[in-house]
Amino acid sequence: MACQQWRPDRGRCLRSYGIVLLLCTNPFLQCVNGYLSSSHVGQEPPYTRDAQPSSIITSPEVPAATSTSSTDEESYASKCPSGGLCSRLPADCIQCNYQHNCTYGKPTSFSCKAKKGVHCVGESGQQQSNFSLSVICQFCWQLDPTQYRCSNSTNCMTVACPRQRYNATCNVLEHVHCLGKRRFQKRLYCNWTGGYKWSTALVLSITLGGFGADRFYLGQWREGLGKLFSFGGLGIWTLIDVLLIAVGYVGPADGSLYI
Rank of each mutant, 00 (worst) to 15 (best):
I136N: 11
Q30K: 04
G122S: 14
R163M: 10
P81I: 08
G233P: 05
R49E: 09
T48K: 06
T169H: 14
G232F: 02
G224N: 01
D254M: 00
Y47S: 04
Y189T: 14
L23F: 15
G233F: 05
T238A: 03
N101Y: 04
L188R: 09
C137T: 13
V203M: 07
M1L: 13
Q164M: 12
C86D: 06
P60W: 12
P53E: 10
A246V: 01
V172W: 05
S256L: 09
R10A: 15
S153M: 05
R163P: 13
D72L: 07
T68Y: 08
D144F: 10
C178V: 11
T66L: 15
F184L: 06
A64K: 07
S16Y: 11
G125D: 04
T158G: 14
N26P: 01
C112Q: 02
I56A: 13
Y47A: 04
Y47H: 06
Q220K: 12
S55A: 14
G251L: 02
I56Q: 10
V121E: 05
V159R: 12
D50S: 12
Q30F: 03
T169L: 14
P46F: 11
T238C: 02
K197D: 09
S111Q: 13
Y35K: 07
V247G: 10
K186T: 07
W192Y: 04
C24L: 15
P162R: 00
G18I: 11
I136D: 12
I259S: 08
W198N: 14
T25M: 13
V242Y: 02
R163S: 11
W198Q: 15
P162H: 01
R183N: 12
P60L: 09
G255M: 08
G105N: 02
S134N: 07
P145K: 08
E123T: 11
Y17T: 14
I56L: 15
I240T: 05
C93W: 01
L143F: 04
K115W: 00
S78C: 08
A77E: 00
D241H: 03
N26K: 07
R49H: 06
G105V: 02
K113L: 03
P8F: 00
W221C: 04
F211K: 00
C93K: 08
V247N: 13
G194V: 04
T207S: 15
L239V: 15
F184T: 05
C120Q: 01
Y166L: 09
T25L: 15
R49N: 07
Y148Q: 00
R10M: 15
L188I: 03
S70K: 05
S59F: 04
F139C: 08
T154C: 00
V41N: 08
N33H: 13
G34E: 11
Y104L: 14
L243C: 12
K113F: 06
W192G: 02
V247I: 15
C102N: 08
G209A: 05
V135H: 00
H177R: 08
C120T: 01
M1S: 13
F184E: 04
R88C: 06
G219M: 09
T169G: 11
L143I: 05
S39T: 13
W237I: 06
D144G: 11
T158N: 13
Q127N: 09
E123W: 09
I206Q: 01
R183P: 02
S109A: 13
H100A: 12
E174A: 14
V118C: 01
A65S: 07
N97F: 06
E174C: 02
I19P: 02
S111Y: 03
S111I: 09
